[in-house]
Amino acid sequence: MDEQSRWLVDQIDQLKESQPEYEKRAFLTALKKVVTEQSIRTDQIQHELDGRLWNHDKW
Results as ranks from 00 to 15, higher is better:
Lys24Val: 03
His47Phe: 13
Asp10Gly: 02
Gln14Leu: 05
Glu23Ala: 13
Ile40Ser: 14
Asp10Asn: 04
Lys16Pro: 00
Asp10Val: 00
Arg25Trp: 01
Gln4Val: 05
Leu49Thr: 09
Leu49Ile: 15
Val35Thr: 06
Gly51Arg: 15
Leu31Tyr: 12
Asp57Pro: 00
Gln46Tyr: 10
Arg25Asn: 02
Thr42Val: 12
Gln11Val: 06
Gln14Lys: 08
Asp13Arg: 09
Arg25Pro: 02
Glu23Asp: 11
Leu49Glu: 09
Gln11Asn: 04
Gln44Met: 12
Asn55Pro: 11
Thr29Val: 06
Val9Pro: 03
Arg52Glu: 13
Asp2Ile: 08
Ile40Leu: 15
Asn55Val: 10
Ser39Phe: 09
Glu21Lys: 01
Thr42Pro: 02
Glu48Ile: 14
Trp59Lys: 11
Val34Glu: 10
Lys16Phe: 00
Arg52Ile: 15
Trp59Met: 11
Lys16Glu: 04
Gln38Tyr: 07
Val34Gln: 13
Leu8Val: 05
Ser39Trp: 09
Thr36Arg: 09
Asp2Tyr: 05
Leu49Arg: 13
Gln44Asp: 08
Glu48Ser: 15
Ala26Leu: 09
Lys33Pro: 00
Ser5Lys: 06
Arg52Cys: 13
Val34Met: 12
Lys33His: 08
Arg41Pro: 07
Val34Tyr: 10
Gln4Lys: 11
Lys33Leu: 05
His47Leu: 15
Val35Met: 05
Pro20Ser: 06
Ser5Gln: 07
Asp43Gly: 14
Asp50Gly: 15
Leu8Lys: 03
Ala30Cys: 01
His47Asn: 15
Ile40Ala: 14
Leu53Arg: 10
Val9Gln: 05
Thr29Asn: 07
Lys24Trp: 00
Arg6Ser: 13
Pro20His: 04
Glu21Gly: 01
Gly51Glu: 14
Thr42Ser: 11
Ile45Ser: 10
Ser18Asp: 03
Asn55Phe: 08
Met1Ser: 13
Gln38Lys: 13
Glu3Ser: 11
Gln11His: 02
Gly51Phe: 01
Gln19Ile: 03
Tyr22Met: 05
Leu31Ser: 09
Met1Gly: 14
Ala26Pro: 00
Ser18Gln: 06
Leu15Ile: 02
Asp13Glu: 08
Leu28Phe: 05
Arg25Cys: 02
Val9Ser: 03
Lys24Leu: 04
Glu17Ile: 10
Lys33Ala: 06
Leu31His: 10
Ala30Glu: 01
Ser5Glu: 08
Trp59Phe: 14
Ala26Asp: 10
Asp10Gln: 02
Glu3Val: 08
Ala26Trp: 04
Glu48Asn: 15
Lys33Gln: 06
Thr36Asp: 12
Phe27Glu: 03
